[in-house]
Structures are given as structure tokens and as C-alpha cells.
Design a protein around this nucleic acid. Sequence first.
DNA 1: GATGCAACCGACCTGTTGGTTGGTCTGGTA
DNA 2: TACCAGACCAACCAACAGGTCGGTTGCATC
Lengths: 205, 205
Amino acid sequence: MEKNLKRLATMQRMEVKGLELFYSKGYSNTSVDDILKELSLSKGAFYYHYESKEDFFIQIIQNLLVRKVYSMLIEPIEGHENPLQLITNCFDEALECAVHNEMDYGFLLSNFLNEFNGRNPRIMAPLNDILKVWEVNLVSAIQRGKFNGYIDRHVDSEGAAVYLMSSFIGIRTLMVESAPSARKYRFMAQLRQYFKSIEASPTSV
Amino acid sequence: MEKNLKRLATMQRMEVKGLELFYSKGYSNTSVDDILKELSLSKGAFYYHYESKEDFFIQIIQNLLVRKVYSMLIEPIEGHENPLQLITNCFDEALECAVHNEMDYGFLLSNFLNEFNGRNPRIMAPLNDILKVWEVNLVSAIQRGKFNGYIDRHVDSEGAAVYLMSSFIGIRTLMVESAPSARKYRFMAQLRQYFKSIEASPTSV
DNA sequence: GATGCAACCGACCTGTTGGTTGGTCTGGTA
DNA sequence: TACCAGACCAACCAACAGGTCGGTTGCATC
């Protein structure tokens, strides 16, 4: 049991540092040695625990990335209050975090999506899984909103979900280089504008 | 003069093939040899015309990418009709093109943005320039729309522009892997919904 | 037909990459 | 104390990267 703990501790260290470097430099620009050097570990240790660099990355996605996206974008909108308010707050916090993080390279998930889109099916599979969970969760939040009278019942839930995901992924890309704070502010204002147009109103037909 | 023509022809061949491969495999996963092999050219030819791989890529951005983005996203919205209609048509065509292109890896510009964001300032500079032109053009289209009575004059032009750019970049990322056609359709419907909320209406305060 | 030069060739250099392998250390067990 | 297996080390490998360089080709000029 003690043994197993040590194993897991080492793997955890590798994966945390791996995610950090993969995020900041990209997957293909980060060598296994880069990660190992920072942890004072050897190649042998790495290939004792993982079959390949690709396998290692998939583990990172499943062990770390899933949880991060979950706690940042999924959990916060699972309440039973007004979903439009929940999503607004959720996006606002996620973007605010990006504004204040000086080492920002964009949205973790979308960076990796971009790097592997249409190129590496083995890695895309778990990434698409995360995307799907996010989408399903948004859809059900919107449907809940319709049911509870917060959102106009003519709204296409799937459409709204895709639209929200798109805009979030895009704004995170745009926020990296120039005027992140200003762009966040403008984005949030337009998001509220959009939300106003899909919320339930007494004047709706 | 004839000489100069040959020079330009070879460079054009290299840059066109380079853009093709950089787009499909990513910049860092495409070697100079990959490009040269497909053109049956040698390393010597390459380094005779370009100082480095990075310099080569910057040339591609300035010579090819700028024009592509211009003709796809900027020119089509420069008319004097209803800008919301122009933008709708423009996005619709750009996305339709993506749907039918089997070799699709996302939005050229945003793929490169993602790859170099926060990492390579020399390459980011010309990419940001393109982004800026796009943004300025959207802003002025929206302002034109306000002036001509198509768009509510309380609308924040810069905000709407950023919101549009975000959503476009995002939907292109989402359209690569799964259900591009369905996602395009849903996206466009929500875009129209958003547009409806910012267009000039007689009932506005 | 000798000269000059832009355009191009391809062998080579140096460093890095993902991955392998034989060996060492250490803590628990009999 | 002898042993054993999991965890790790460090030297090594072939493939490949970006980039260099001395040399060749082909065409215009005189």
C-alpha cells in the first residue's frame, strides 16, 4: 500500500508539471525531458510509469483536465436558480481568472482542441468527451431555465449551448494578447444582451 | 525582370505549399523538409530565399494569410447595405465553406493564434495586425449600421465586434470534429437571435 | 565562347527528440 | 541476513530538426 502511494505520488507530480508545461508551451513543443528536468527525474522513471508521451498526455486529460473544466465551467451552473444568471457568473469568474493570470495562454481545453483537431484521433477522443459533457450540461441548464420560466420556451437549447461554447472559446483566444480586461468587459456586456433576447418575457408571443 | 519573375514564382510555390502544410499539421509539426519534399526542391533553395523557418512563416502570413482573411471576412461586409445582413451572409458563407471542406482543421487565423499566443511575439505581431483589421472593419460596419438606422444606436460597436469575432473563432474550433453542419445551423440561428436584439426597433427607448 | 551571377543542389553539422536498456537503490519479507 | 520486486537512474540509440556551405547549373551579357 505504501508502495502504491509512492507510485501515485510520482505520477501525480509528473502529470501536474506536464499539464503546466503542455499548457504554456504546447504539447509538441514540450519534450519529455523538459518535464523530467524540472522534477529531477530520469527518462527511466517516466517510461516505467507511462507507455509513451501520448499515453501520458491522455492520462493528464482524464485525470486533471476533466476536473479543471468541470469545476470551472460545469459545476457552477448546476444550481436551480436562473441559469442565465448562473452562466453569466460562471463565465465572468472564469474570464476574470484569465485576466489576472499573467501566465495566460488561453483556454486550456481549446488550446489542446486546436492543437489536435483533425490530426490526432486518440487524443481528440477524451477532449471531445469533455466538450460533450460541457455541452450536455449547458443544454440541460437551459432546458431547466425554460421549464422554470426563466428562458423563453421557443429557444433552441442545443443552439444556445453551441453559441455559448463558441463565444467562450473565442473570447479566451482573443484575451491572451491584447487588452484582456477590456475585451472581457465588452464580451460580458454583449453576452447579457444576448441573454436578454432569449429570456422569458411577458410580451413574448 | 525575367529573373525576378522566376524568383517570385519559386517563392510563391514554397509559400503556398507551406501554408497548406502549416495549416494541416501545425507550424511546429511541419518541417522545412516536408515542404521541400513535396515541391522537389532542396534545402539550399529554401535558405537562399528565406533567412529562417520563422521568417518564412511571417512572409506567408503577410503575403497569403492577410489576403485570405481579407477576402473571406472583411471585403464581404464593406458594402452599404444592412451590416447585420452582410455579416450574417459573410459568416454563413465562411462556415458553409468549412462544412464542405473535408480537409478542415479549423479557422486558419485562429489556429495560428492558438499556436503562438503568448509564446512567439515576432509571429504574433502580424497575426494581431490581421485581427485588428478585422476588428476595426467590424466596428465601422456596425457604426455605419447605427448611422443608417439598421442598428440600435445604444449598441456598443466595439463590444459587438469582439463578441462576433469570439463566436466565429469558437464555432470554427467546434466545427472541426463533430457535426459541423448541425453546429453551423444552430450557430447561425443564435447569431440571428443576437442580431435581432441589437437591431434598431421602433419600440426602443 | 568566356564571364558573371542568380538559382539551386545535397552532403554535412549540431542539437534535440521519443524511446530503450542494463544496472542500482531501497524497503519490506522470510 | 539474504532476497526480491517496485522505483528509479543514466548512458545510449536512431531519427529527425533547422541551418550551413562548397559546389553545380543555366541563362544573359559582352
